[in-house]
Design a protein around this nucleic acid. Sequence first.
DNA 1: TACGTGATGACAGTTAGTGACATCACGTGC
DNA 2: GCACGTGATGTCACTAACTGTCATCACGTA
Lengths: 176, 176
Amino acid sequence: MTLYVERGFEQTTVAEIAELAGLTERTFFRYFADKREVLFSGASSLQELMVNAVRDAPATLSPYDAIAQGIAAAGEAIGPGHDRARLRQHVIDANNELKERELIKMATLSGALAQALHERGVDEPTSSLAAEAGIAVFRVAFERWVRGRDDVALGVVIDESIATLSAITHREERYA
Amino acid sequence: MTLYVERGFEQTTVAEIAELAGLTERTFFRYFADKREVLFSGASSLQELMVNAVRDAPATLSPYDAIAQGIAAAGEAIGPGHDRARLRQHVIDANNELKERELIKMATLSGALAQALHERGVDEPTSSLAAEAGIAVFRVAFERWVRGRDDVALGVVIDESIATLSAITHREERYA
DNA sequence: TACGTGATGACAGTTAGTGACATCACGTGC
DNA sequence: GCACGTGATGTCACTAACTGTCATCACGTA
């Protein structure tokens, strides 16, 4: 991570990382499937957290509100680490391969959330659409939070974005 | 493409592609930035099509409806090629690197659509959210269409998905 | 006919990632 | 206290995706 920040992702070789960490390249690849995965080791636990939140949400909640609970849980987990998130995102945004990896993590997450909705009795395509919409909200909210001021809480931005999406898809309200 | 279908993406080397096409590896890499890009050469023209549709949509349309026009345009362009789409998607789904590339193309598209909304006078974060939601709809609809029966038109699936997302994000209607 | 230009080939080099085997530390059962 | 199985690490050889550089070649033009 230090190296990625200092000289960028592409300019850092696995050999350098391994040397700095005091192990061989081969061992590095035993811990991480590839060079990119270093930055995404936390993704699976975040996914677990969100899926649990959806699963444990009150049965009376709509799919969209259940997903909102999951996103809120992610917000609470990430919220405190604004500086870390900003640094990490800066590295990712500077490199296309890393962006790709981030996107596939999001897509996997979306699939897991759809599955969690399934287990709440929600049918296709409602489950997939609600999950995808939730991820869309999370993506936009997270980006705004990372680029925004330090004192605006992630949870607040998320709530705003959830409401905004509802307003957008209400076709009749503000437009002809 | 023939080779990717026959033996899979990973099992196909650039050397083989080059030989089949009657040129050298180096020349292959002059036409395609990398091995994956072969399957996504049409992405930029599709993006252009969608952006134009959004730009040229009646000014009275809401952001969501303007995006819907863009998606409909994509539906018309892709719709006739059901077999080709199915084959291509089969190759992509079998390989994670290709899925990543597909996702970043979608993300780029989302950004372009958000930009097109901007030029219609739509503010952030509404523009990004509407674009992301539109991509979410497109993603789900496209997948359903590819996996579904031959005689169901893509346009129909898209319209259904647009309506379903509206219903989902109407929180009060069908749930407590 | 000489010349500039754009496309291609030839070739060497870097780096990510993998497979196979050796080694080594360490806890367990005897 | 010692043999032994096991999991983590090192070593080495190898493949394949890319990249940089220079040579070559076809072709339209002055």
